[in-house]
Structure formats: structure tokens, C-alpha cells
Design a binder for these strands. Structure first.
Lengths: 220, 220
DNA sequence: GAGCCGCTGGCACCAAGCTGCCAAACCAGC
DNA sequence: GCTGGTTTGGCAGCTTGGTGCCAGCGGCTC
């Protein structure tokens, strides 16, 4: 373990992290921000629960948790995060990857996870105020562009193959007449499909449907 | 000036920054990433040009420049950045603020601008690998969600007050009949406006118009 | 004033979209 | 085979959207 004027410390392995930094996490008084690829970041059993329990003892702490979009593919992770979000912390999902876990406590101390080395991960604890502030600045910039977990799970009505085709045709600005011929279905059925789609998107007009479809990323 | 094992250094004032870190910037061999609120960050005359000239001498260096959305309001800044983008560096605009300037050179050294102190700004130079990597991770996450300057200047057809109202009404899913009454104009004129809007958006159908309006961020 | 814009709104007409109704077709399971 | 439920498509009628045409109303210059 190397020390820079006792400001910046490198910890090796989660055990050491838990021993040295857990009190630090639990000691959060105002703000606890965290970015990670996936909630299952703490390999060490119990460490996670310990920290969560400590945090729940201080409900005044604002907690912000940011994850990469890959968690959305993991149902149990989504459930876990939804549960967490129900207990106070704000949870957002970033459209992209978060390769390095980062935690900042009370705007004073940052912990950055690093590479594996000799089977253990390294964690760097940073206290230099300007560096912590710089990390936070980037964090908030990223946070601002991420979307709330609730919005993420609410959306994406999971539509079928044909519905996607129809959306594509609508997006091309094609008339119903031409679109239904292209799909090899009758005009009546095509419009039925569109109506179903609009109901699914909770849209009152086709304009609104286009809007929603774009918002939900259902169309390129 | 305090030193942590000569790894992390705090520099006071731009003069010291230029003296100590300019060679570092100019020495970039692979990658030069930078985030700032505004390109007019270097108060010291000449420093900026010096660095740019040095960088142009090494065209192999990939340069990434990220700015806050406030620069879009500054015409001269936009022109400057467009010029820069024409010379190789990628320039993106983030939808939000970037309160702390950050520069990372060759994935090895990070410079973070801090507070004013005694009339001078402080700059912190970080070399700790994990911290630099963590900063970069957040940087790229942010970068990924920012949009290219060129896209930004190309889009946004700059529509008037009433057009925005009409977009809002369309987005509400309101019928033309109701919308025109709300605006206090005739149905005929309302539809004229909508037709103009659709031409502006290059849309063949209202669905497509909704799509485009959303893509261009013309509607919340 | 007359004459010339450019914009607006009313009318008419057509095109496009929406939906109820019913018969035909399809697809289980029996 | 038959039977009951679902899906499809045609028809019809209605609503909504789209646009050409022209009259009216400013504001403008000459």
C-alpha cells in the first residue's frame, strides 16, 4: 500500500477496501454518488449489505447511483435497482458503458476502482479537493445525460416483427395505401395495426405517435 | 506548490501551468482529451496558440474536445470551434454544464482546473494511473452522450414563437380544430402553419414530422 | 388617392385516416 | 369431419387532414 501524504491511497483487494473504506462510506453525511457498470460489483459477500444498512441509518444522505446500460439486460439486477430506488437513492441508467467504478462521498473523498492485480482489484482513494471536484463535475455531466431507471423500465412496449416494419414504413412517410401493399396485408388490417400501435404508444395522433416512437428509441 | 511523491502536483495560476505543463501538453503523442465550459479558458495570451501550434506539429495525435452547451450561444466561439474541428480534433457539445476544465494527455496525465485562490486559478496535475483511468472513463461516458458540433450547427431550423406553440399542441395530440381555437387563428391558417412546419422538417406525414421534431429536440 | 404587396380566413373539394359491422378464412381442440 | 374462438379483409360512413382558389384586410410606395 503506497501513500501520498496520506491523501491518496491505493488499496489492494476488496477486503482491504472494506476494512479501510467502509467506515468512510458509512460515514457519508450529505451525499453519496456512485457510478458502476453493474450493481453486482462487490464480490465480497456481506460488504454490500453492511454499507447499505449503514446508509439507511442516515436517511438524510442524498444518494445517486449511475449504471451502464448493460444492467437493463439483467432482470435480477433491474429488480434490485428498482428496490433500491424505492428506498430513496436516485438510480439512473447511462446509454453506454461505465468501465471504472467510481464513488464519491460528501464531495470530499473519491474511490476509483482500477485493474485487477495479482487476483485482486485495486482501489484508489483520492482526497485532493480539486481532483474530487473534477471527478464530480464529469460525474454530474454524465448523470445529467442519463435517464431515470423508472422511465427506462416503463418504456419499450416490446413490439413484434410486423409492428417494427410498420413503424419503419410510417417513419419513411409512406401512405397507408402503399405501406399495406408492401406488407402484403389489406388496408383495413394495416390501419388496425397502426391503431394498436398508437394505443400501445398512448398516442392520440400520428404526430404524437412519431414523437413517442422516437423518444422510446423504437425507430432509428 | 505541494507535491505528492512528485506524482500529483498543484500548480497556482496559469503562468505556472504554462511553464510546467505546456511541455506536457505539447508532448502528447497519441491522445489529447479536453473538457471545458468554453474555449476561452486560457486567460494568458499566447499560451493557447503555443499549445495548438505544438499539437499541429504532431498530427497523429487524436484530439477530443468537449464543451458545455453554453458555447452555442457565443457565435465567435462556435466559429473558433468549427475552425478547430476542421483541423482534425473532434469537437462535441454536451447538453449541460462543464464546471471544471479537465485535460488528459496520452491516458497518463490529467490536469484539472480548480478554484480561484488569491487571484489565480489552481490546476492539479494527476498521474496516478487508476485515477487518470477513472477520469477518462467518466470522460468517455460523457463524450458518448454529447453530439458533434457539426450536427449541432446544422440542425435546429430556428423556428418562431408560434411554430413552437404549434409543435407543442401537436405534441399534445390535439386536433386541428381545437388547436387553432387555442391559438386564436383560423383552421385554414393553422393548417398552413403545420404544412410550413412539415416542409421545414422535410416530412411527408405528420408521423414523420413528430419523429423529426423529436430528433431535433424541438419538443420536450 | 391608386396600386401593389403579403398575410389571413372562408369555402370547396379531395385525400387520408379511423372505425363499426359482418362475412370469410384460419386454427386450434375434440 | 365439426365447433368455437380468433384473425382477416371488404364495405361503408364518418372524421380529420391537405390544398387550391379567391375575397378581404392591412401596410407600403409612389
Amino acid at each position: 500500500m503506497s501513500t501520498d501524504l496520506d491523501q491518496n491511497v491505493v488499496l489492494r483487494g476488496e477486503r482491504e477496501l472494506v476494512e479501510r473504506a467502509a467506515p468512510l462510506f458509512a460515514g457519508a453525511r450529505e451525499e453519496f454518488v456512485c457510478a458502476a457498470a453493474h450493481p453486482r460489483t462487490w464480490a465480497l459477500p456481506g460488504a454490500r449489505e453492511q454499507i447499505i444498512a449503514a446508509r439507511r441509518a442516515h436517511p438524510g444522505v442524498r444518494a445517486y447511483k449511475l449504471y451502464g446500460s448493460e444492467v437493463l439486460a439483467d432482470d435480477t439486477a433491474v429488480r434490485l435497482l428498482t428496490d433500491i430506488a424505492g428506498h430513496g437513492p436516485q438510480v439512473r441508467i447511462l446509454d453506454g458503458q461505465i468501465p471504472h467504478e467510481t464513488i464519491v462521498v460528501d464531495r470530499r473523498v473519491a474511490v476509483i476502482a482500477g485493474e485487477m492485480r495479482a487476483g485482486d482489484r485495486e482501489f484508489t482513494v483520492v482526497r485532493t479537493p480539486a481532483v474530487v471536484a473534477g471527478i464530480l463535475a464529469l460525474y454530474w455531466a454524465t448523470w445529467h445525460n442519463a435517464v431515470d431507471l423508472a422511465d427506462h423500465t416503463a418504456e419499450v412496449p416490446a413490439l413484434g416483427e410486423q409492428s417494427r416494419d410498420i413503424l419503419a414504413l410510417l417513419a419513411d412517410g409512406m401512405k397507408d395505401e402503399a405501406a399495406c401493399r408492401q406488407l402484403g396485408i389489406s388496408l383495413r388490417t394495416y390501419r388496425r395495426r397502426v391503431a394498436e400501435l398508437m394505443e400501445l404508444l398512448d398516442a392520440d395522433s400520428r404526430f404524437q405517435a412519431g414523437l413517442r416512437a422516437r423518444s422510446l428509441g423504437l425507430v432509428p
